[in-house]
Measured scan of single mutants.
Amino acid sequence: ITIHVNGVTYHFDNPEEAEKFAQKMAKTYQLKMEIHNGEFHME
């Protein structure tokens, strides 16, 4: 699972971890999250 946050790329093997991380980042930084081709993009 690949997550892009403001141009920084994070890779996770565990989908649950990826989702937790994505939600935490979105909440902490008030980010808008989109999913493209199974990759999370946040800005």
Rank of each mutant, 00 (worst) to 15 (best):
I1T: 04
I1N: 02
T2C: 12
T2R: 12
T2D: 12
T2S: 08
T2I: 11
T2P: 04
I3H: 01
I3Y: 03
I3W: 02
I3S: 00
H4E: 04
V5P: 00
V5M: 04
V5I: 08
V5F: 10
N6M: 14
N6Y: 14
G7R: 07
G7D: 11
G7Y: 13
G7A: 07
G7E: 06
V8K: 10
V8C: 15
V8Q: 08
T9L: 10
T9D: 06
T9Q: 12
Y10G: 00
Y10F: 11
Y10Q: 01
Y10H: 08
H11N: 07
F12W: 02
F12H: 00
F12Q: 00
D13H: 09
D13Q: 09
D13A: 10
N14Q: 07
N14V: 10
N14E: 06
N14L: 11
N14F: 09
P15M: 13
E16S: 09
E16A: 07
E16I: 11
E17K: 09
A18M: 04
A18R: 02
A18L: 06
A18S: 02
E19G: 07
E19H: 11
E19V: 13
E19A: 12
E19M: 13
K20L: 11
K20A: 08
F21T: 00
F21C: 13
A22G: 01
A22C: 14
Q23N: 07
Q23G: 03
Q23H: 06
K24Y: 15
K24L: 13
M25G: 00
M25W: 06
A26S: 07
A26V: 03
A26F: 07
A26W: 14
K27H: 05
K27D: 14
K27I: 12
K27Y: 09
K27M: 08
K27T: 06
T28L: 15
T28Q: 14
T28I: 14
T28D: 15
Y29K: 13
Y29S: 14
Y29A: 14
Y29R: 11
Q30H: 14
Q30G: 13
Q30A: 05
Q30I: 02
Q30V: 02
L31H: 12
L31N: 12
L31M: 07
L31I: 12
L31R: 01
K32R: 03
K32A: 13
M33I: 14
M33K: 00
M33Y: 05
M33A: 02
M33W: 09
M33H: 01
E34N: 05
E34S: 08
E34H: 13
E34Q: 04
I35H: 03
I35E: 05
H36M: 05
H36C: 14
H36A: 03
N37R: 02
G38E: 04
G38V: 02
G38I: 05
E39I: 09
F40E: 03
H41K: 03
H41E: 04
H41M: 05
H41I: 08
M42C: 14
M42D: 05
M42Q: 03
M42N: 04
E43T: 13
E43Q: 09
E43Y: 14
